[in-house]
Amino acid sequence: MAEADRAAFPDLYQPTVSIRPDTRVATAGSCFAQHIGRYLRDAGCTVLDAEPPPRSMTDAVAKRYGYGLFSGRHGNVYTARQMRQLLEEVADGQADPRLVWDREGRFVDALRPQVEPEGLASVEEVLLHRDYHLERTSRMLRQADVFVFTLGLTEAWEDRATGRVLPLCPGVVGGTFDPEAYVFRNFRHSEILADLYVIKALLRRFNPAMSLILTVSPVPLTATATGRHILEATSWSKATLRGAVGEFVEETDVVDYFPSFEIVTHPASGGPWFEENLRSVSPAGVDKVMSIFLRGHGLGIDRDTALALPPSVDGNEDDSDSETDLVCEDLLLQAFAR
């Protein structure tokens, strides 16, 4: 191992799933998944976006409102169960009015509480936006050739009444924590494995030819509701995810595993690849991970072209006067750390 090419790991990622510039790619997952879409775009690939921001929206506003982070404006999807339930809801097309939270007189979508930082004026408005989100996501998925899903956590809070797992603990950015209404879940290997099979089947309902690439986020937990030490909880969570994904990929066609977790965390990969907070992956670490991903697909980034891309805000035609940081809800998870 010590003598291997630790900069490039040329044999580490040899995907069977092909991504070319004209391949329509959809991304989802935990906050680390945002890098995948960004790098693929920079490499000239076709990354789908179900709800692109208005052309006049600046990057800062777009990020604040959850645009352009993933292929759907659903915010972070941390667990396989959350992904599965989102796909089921997209397929069904019916938003559940029970999953709207009150936040100081405003209302937020409990399933993506961060995308509207001020909340909306009424439950009806939240549901209308969610219906729109579901329909746009459905249309996007029907176009997707490849779906890249980054699994982040095994821990989640489940709404007892609906059975839906939530991206954030109730009470953090909306709602009220009520132990009678919400139950903590720490998904087991078998549950994750079963969810992955369902995810693949659901994706193929949208497009029977869709391929799947899975990866496990190298970002450690910042908090755990298990009562264990965070070190142990992180290892437990990542090992469970890695094991389930490994078994799923072994037993399934047209699914690849991309080892982002290993590239960042394995001692043989050099590093350290974490920032001073020992949690965020450093830009150099992200670059290392994504260069291996792109090289595996025969892709690369022309830095000059990437830098020369026009800003997202186009010319102000109606102006009659004519003259790396990611959105990571994990940080909020600290709020329910025990």
């Binding site: 709800e51 921001p53 208005p54 929206m57 600046t58 509207e116 219906d131 329909e135 746009r136 805000v313």
Partner: peptide
């Protein structure tokens, strides 16, 4: 059919903040 566009549905705060940023 809102999802059919061509205009995008955005929240009022998102529209307001887009204009404010401009």
């Amino acid at each position: 059919d809102l999802a059919d566009g061509p205009e995008r549905l955005v929240s009022y705060p998102a529209a307001r903040d887009t204009i404010a940023a401009s």
